[in-house]
């Protein structure tokens, strides 16, 4: 059975999601930051974490976005193969939702139409849209507002199979050492391992969409995540780089089958405010 979904429904979902994530924080993420505040040893870091938590309340109370970098919008859409989108183009509907949210909710327009000419589009589009056709008759959206202070600290490297898990771990540590002071720590880290050049980058970004309490089923990856958290928090870099024992809140990994000659690794960094939500049509 084909299910029809009107494109204006898509616009509405995207609009609401973009507004929601820029003003409201996932309660689980807030809890994680409260835990960080409780275990923090540095007085400066404690005061930073207190202010971060105060800011969330202040944003809600005064209807001011959590952060002035209201991000580039990234949409992962899994579209059921029995869905028929009517009334207009899917991609236009997504961008229309972004446009309306960023105008009506006074969000910052941070997109330039060309990376060299750098003219602002003044409506925060285009969004980055990743679509995938799946079974079923629904559309699942993951919508993210990604700030670029943290995005700029992300890296990708084509390791060799001989580098193995130690090579992966060393590369991640090198990247974190550079990234944490500048990326609004305590950071959230998305890691992609395997696939090819672009798949591992995509997996790293998808890893940022996983729940903050996500645990990898495979012990190899779960242990690697924990070792990375431990490393990050032992650097002493701390919240905003001003010292402390909370440098990373969470590390999530997504792996993919790869080529016999390859071991790509991508690390996508997000600030403590991972602004992401899920919606379904």
């Amino acid at each position: 059975m084909i299910k029809e979904i009107e494109s204006n429904k898509v616009t509405e979902v995207i609009k609401q999601a973009c507004t929601d994530i820029n003003f409201n924080v996932d309660p689980k993420l807030k809890q994680k930051l409260e835990e960080a505040l409780n275990n923090e040893e540095s007085p400066i870091a404690k005061s930073i974490l207190e202010n971060i938590l105060l800011n969330f309340d202040c944003a809600q109370k005064n209807n001011i976005p959590i952060c002035q970098d209201t991000g580039m919008v990234i949409v992962f859409a899994e579209i059921g193969q029995d869905v028929h989108i009517t009334g207009g183009s899917f991609e236009k509907a997504v961008n229309e939702g972004v446009k309306q949210a960023y105008k009506d909710s006074f969000l910052r327009k941070s997109i330039v139409s060309d990376p060299i000419e750098r003219k602002n589009t003044f409506n925060n589009t285009p969004a980055i849209l990743h679509t995938r056709i799946v079974d079923g008759d629904k559309i699942n959206f993951k919508i993210m507002a990604k700030g670029f202070g943290s995005e700029n600290t992300s890296q990708l490297k084509m390791l060799k199979p001989a580098d193995g898990i130690n090579g992966i771990e060393n590369f991640i540590k090198e990247v974190l050492e550079e990234a944490i002071p500048n990326a609004c720590a305590p950071v959230i880290v998305g890691i992609g391992i395997g696939g090819d050049f672009e798949t591992c980058a995509l997996n790293a970004k998808k890893a940022l969409t996983l729940p903050i309490d996500y645990k990898h089923k495979n012990k190899i990856y779960e242990d690697l995540s924990n070792r990375i958290i431990k490393f990050a928090n032992n650097t002493g870099i701390g919240p905003m780089g001003l010292g402390g024992i909370n440098s990373a809140l969470k590390v999530n990994i997504i792996e993919s089958p790869t080529h016999i000659a390859g071991l790509p690794v991508a690390i996508n960094i997000c600030c403590y405010a991972d602004r992401i939500t899920e919606r379904e049509l």
Binding site: A45, N234, T235, G236, I237, G238, L242, G243, I245
Partner: peptide, 29 residues
């Protein structure tokens, strides 16, 4: 509200504070 993170003598909180909290995080892995 701001914090002086690098002063006019070049003293940097990024270095001083970091050194104090190195290897202080405890997690059983």
């Amino acid at each position: 509200p701001v914090i002086v993170s690098i002063d006019s003598n070049g003293k940097s909180l990024f270095e001083i504070e970091r050194a104090k909290y190195r290897d202080k995080f405890k997690l059983e892995v």
